[in-house]
């Protein structure tokens, strides 16, 4: 067995802890593959699945609790910051808020299985002034389900994963380079996806000053208030002339408009 695998086994649980913590705090380092490998190693008796479970749940709870406290302290501004740094442009605050509004703290039970939602749900719970104890209970159960699913998959497919590990073992430090390249490629793809979205939006975001000038000149395009219903309940005001759009009213509102009509959209 090479030094590489020895290192993984020797520092396995702290590595899993670090990986889970970094992912939950927002770093683009997926932890699920690590949990699956840890599960496979535990099936071979080379790691303790109990230690992996406990370390992962604790790491997840610490990271989520930090976000929960930040949400409680800074409110919805934290969500906007998260959206700015997130590599998942589809995980917009509006969708997350709508989901959280629908399911409440129960959404934490499945949050970790939904890309983007996992990171935004804890500060959202904090901003919504949910009870700390209830948050920790639901978040802890959610973390348990997520970690256990990775470990169970690893244990179930440990023979196949052992083959992959052996192949990596033969590659030695090349394996590290390949994995690092794969992660870099994943980040690059996400980044390109985000750039692509911005291009589709023409990246020409409109400043509030320009919009005010357009309104004053009477040349403002259609303005759409795309905040979630929860956000509109918190602040029942809108930019003058803005139309409020819910998912189910979108069709009727925009059916008669030409596709080249300029539309300015705002969220919270």
């Amino acid at each position: 067995m090479t030094q590489l695998i020895h290192s993984v086994i020797r520092y396995g649980v702290p590595l899993v802890f670090l990986n889970v913590f970094l992912e939950q705090i927002g770093a683009p380092v997926p932890a699920l593959p690590t949990l699956i490998v840890a599960g496979a190693l535990s099936a071979d008796g080379r790691m303790s699945s109990t230690h992996v479970l406990v370390a992962s749940i604790v790491a997840s709870l610490i990271a989520d609790w930090i976000w929960f406290l930040l949400g409680r302290r800074h409110g919805y501004r934290v969500l906007r910051t998260l959206c700015r740094i997130s590599l998942s442009p589809d995980s917009c605050v509006r969708e997350t808020e709508a989901r959280f509004e629908r399911w409440g703290l129960k959404s934490l039970l499945i949050a970790k299985f939904i890309p983007g939602f996992s990171l935004v749900a804890p500060p959202l719970a904090g901003a919504a002034r949910q009870s700390t104890i209830a948050f920790l209970i639901y978040d802890g159960i959610g973390a348990l389900l997520w970690v256990a699913s990775g470990v169970v998959v690893g244990r179930a497919f440990h023979h196949a994963i052992a083959d992959v590990l052996n192949a990596l073992e033969n590659l030695g430090w090349w394996a590290v380079a390949i994995i690092a390249s794969a992660i870099a490629l994943l980040i690059a793809l996400k980044w390109m996806q985000r750039r692509s979205l911005y291009r589709r939006l023409r990246m020409a975001r409109v400043s509030v000053h320009d919009l005010k000038r357009m309104l004053d000149e009477g040349s403002a395009p259609m303005i759409v208030d795309a905040r979630s219903s929860a956000a509109r309940k918190r602040d029942a005001r809108r930019i003058p002339t803005a139309v409020v759009v819910e998912g189910d009213t979108l069709q009727e509102r925009f059916a008669a408009l030409p596709p080249n009509r300029e539309i300015i959209v705002y969220c919270t």
């Binding site: 509030v208 809108r238 930019i239 925009f254 300029e262």
Partner: peptide, 30 residues
Amino acid sequence: MLIDRGFTLVRPLKGGFEAWIEAGYPVENL
């Protein structure tokens, strides 16, 4: 959603509603 429905000139407001409020610009009640 608007882009998916074929609208080609959809532009986001920089800073969102909070930036509008912070700038002290007028608002309407919903």
